[in-house]
Nucleic acid binder design. Sequence first.
DNA 1: ATGAACCTTCCAGTACAATGGAAGGTCAAG
DNA 2: CTTGACCTTCCATTGTACTGGAAGGTTCAT
Lengths: 129, 129
Amino acid sequence: MRIGQLAEATGTTTKTLRFYEESGLLPPAERLASGYRDYAEDAVGKVAFIHRGQAAGLTLAQIRQILKIREHGQTPCSHVQGLLGQRLGELDAQIAELLALRETIFQLHEKASKPEPDSCSSDQVCRYI
Amino acid sequence: MRIGQLAEATGTTTKTLRFYEESGLLPPAERLASGYRDYAEDAVGKVAFIHRGQAAGLTLAQIRQILKIREHGQTPCSHVQGLLGQRLGELDAQIAELLALRETIFQLHEKASKPEPDSCSSDQVCRYI
DNA sequence: ATGAACCTTCCAGTACAATGGAAGGTCAAG
DNA sequence: CTTGACCTTCCATTGTACTGGAAGGTTCAT
């Protein structure tokens, strides 16, 4: 399977696949006599895994760790569980932060809906922020 | 007021202040005979405004727009209101996305808490993702 | 044999908001 | 007069996940 076919099969681009290989997410592909990359069938599963990992909000660095564990013949289960737990904590923190920010912006937006340009002193630039 | 003092007064660094000037957020400072930057008092207010804008989740590009309007002697009120409204919409979308992602991760995390390593087939890399 | 479609490597750039460091100039105190 | 704190410019780098383009090699159909 050449790189274009793998890209097609996984809904990505050849550029991205080469980038994944260079970033250590995919093992260096076998080469044909021509120098073209020649992927085994399981490459499709690996790329699909990368996509699922991204959809789960994992970074490529985290996905790389999981793939490395698998490459070493181990099952990455407990590591994955740890990552998911960590990600959950990060998400909760991020959501809390955004909700607080949303409230702040909402207040500012309300205030700005009753404009009083004259009370904008130039040393504060804008009364509403 | 020299750059170090302005940095101190506004809780930032000289690096950042020069970066702001180069990025068009702050007008080019006056210079002393030595070539040192010599800031007027109102610089403190401008930098503080930049910080408040950032705290409100505005990008430096958006803050720059507001500051430009003020520099042209106008009051940026309606523009600010527009930006805040836009920001509110973005925040709502982002929060909704994160909540959905949180739910996904939560499910995965639950599933991963009952490990069954043997059912991880190598073509999917990890049963839990 | 020639053109299209595919592949290769390498280098550079995107957005964001700074940050780091080198090489050198200025100023006040001791 | 020297030391140290401060300032100057310029260039490069950080992290994330790619994306774009140049210059050239391969494969296949016509």
